[in-house]
Design a protein around this nucleic acid. Structure first.
Length: 307
RNA sequence: GGGUCGGUGGCAGAGCGGUCAAUUGCUCGCGACUGUAAAUCGCGCGUCUCCGGACUACGGGGGUUCGAAUCCCUCCCGGCCCA
């Protein structure tokens, strides 16, 4: 129980090798993994998300890979939407429970926004998504939404990206519920945990190659068939699959007959490279992240951190 | 060999006498992000810059013109057609 408040985070762009490192650390330090991946949380999205191989354990209600429990994998139907706020809340509970059981929590994933929400104890406005309102608002143009927001909350309007409908809609949604968008929390409610954030990445050319090789394997392992199955057997709409993004988007285009399978592969490859770039743009801002790509170094740092 | 169409920035592909350093798409580079984040959105992309411009550019060379990526001649290279 000596490490009652320490948490290790393994993050990095897609195909960097996070999962393996997390599992090795978990084995070494008696830990369990908490997945911070916005797509691996869904059941049936396995090959397409590059999920580690494992099985669901009904007793513990967790996904087990190489004997290591992985939380927040396979807990939702792909039809369900989930959010950073829910992730943060749920992760908080899991961490508490894990520490009580004397396990080391290892958060592993590439969804930077979610990780930050936990590490920085982000406080999100208590306003639940309102699908009806969102649908109505999404019919308007970004310019119209911006004008509307400017009227009800000039302060938020001054800092928001005026062309980003997703942001504008959420801002208006919050305003409709509680008047105005609260200022973002500035860290005065620091998390009571101590985090070691380790980032794994590779030079661009190396990472691109890793992405390509891995994607090739995934295509060979039934990635395309998985999407078809999700739609036909799982009843997941094409629209939803497109929203999931990357390969799910492009393979859906293939099923719709708009592109060939080869094109779907190339487009997915390109999208994953772009995605990796976006992830790095996010991670680079956080100077606390310790960038290591050799497992031996990671283990060494972890050991030091845990005392 | 004859005819014909074409050679434009990393690629594709517009432009067809001035307003062209050159539309557009892609690649590439940079970035934003507080309950959709694998989503969503923005900026840049000839060189140099005291940010006003300066310089080099549309296959090579030579012309016409006040002015050419755009017209003419010629050479080189490619596609297609006829031999």
């Amino acid at each position: 129980m000596k490490n009652f408040n320490k948490i290790i985070v393994i993050l990095g762009p897609t195909s960097s090798g996070k999962s393996d490192a997390a599992i090795r650390l978990a084995k070494k330090f008696d830990g369990e993994v908490i997945s911070a991946d916005s797509r691996q949380i869904y059941r049936g999205m396995d090959v397409g998300t590059g999920k580690v191989v494992g099985i669901w354990n009904e007793d513990s209600k967790t996904f087990i890979s190489e004997d290591v429990p992985h939380h927040l994998i396979d807990i939702l139907s792909p039809k369900t939407s989930w959010s950073a706020a829910q992730f943060k809340r749920k992760t908080g509970k899991i961490i508490k429970d894990m520490l009580k059981r004397g396990k080391l929590p290892i958060i592993c994933g590439g969804t930077g926004f979610w990780i930050k929400a936990v590490v920085d104890n982000a406080i999100f406005p208590e306003v639940k998504p309102d699908p009806k309102l969102r649908e109505k608002l999404s019919e308007k143009s970004a310019a119209e939404l911006f004008e509307e927001l400017k009227k009800i909350d000039p302060e938020r309007a001054s800092s928001i990206d005026a062309k980003n409908k997703v942001r504008l809609i959420r801002a208006i949604e919050i305003c409709k519920a509680i008047g105005k968008v609260p200022a973002i929390n500035t860290g005065n409610e620091k998390s009571s945990y101590e985090f070691l954030q380790i980032g794994i990445t590779h030079p661009k050319e190396v990472l691109d190659e890793r992405i390509r090789i891995r994607l090739k394997q995934r295509f060979d392992n039934g990635m395309v068939e998985e999407v078809g199955k999700l739609h036909l057997e799982g009843g997941v709409s094409w629209k939803r699959l497109e929203e999931i993004g990357l390969g799910y988007y492009w393979i859906t285009q293939y099923f719709k007959g708009r592109i060939s399978k080869d094109e779907a592969f190339e487009k997915t490859y390109q999208s994953e490279k772009d995605y990796a770039k976006r992830q790095m743009t996010w991670f680079k801002k956080d100077r606390r992240i310790l960038w290591l790509n050799d497992y031996a170094d990671i283990e060494k740092e972890a050991k030091e951190f845990l005392g």
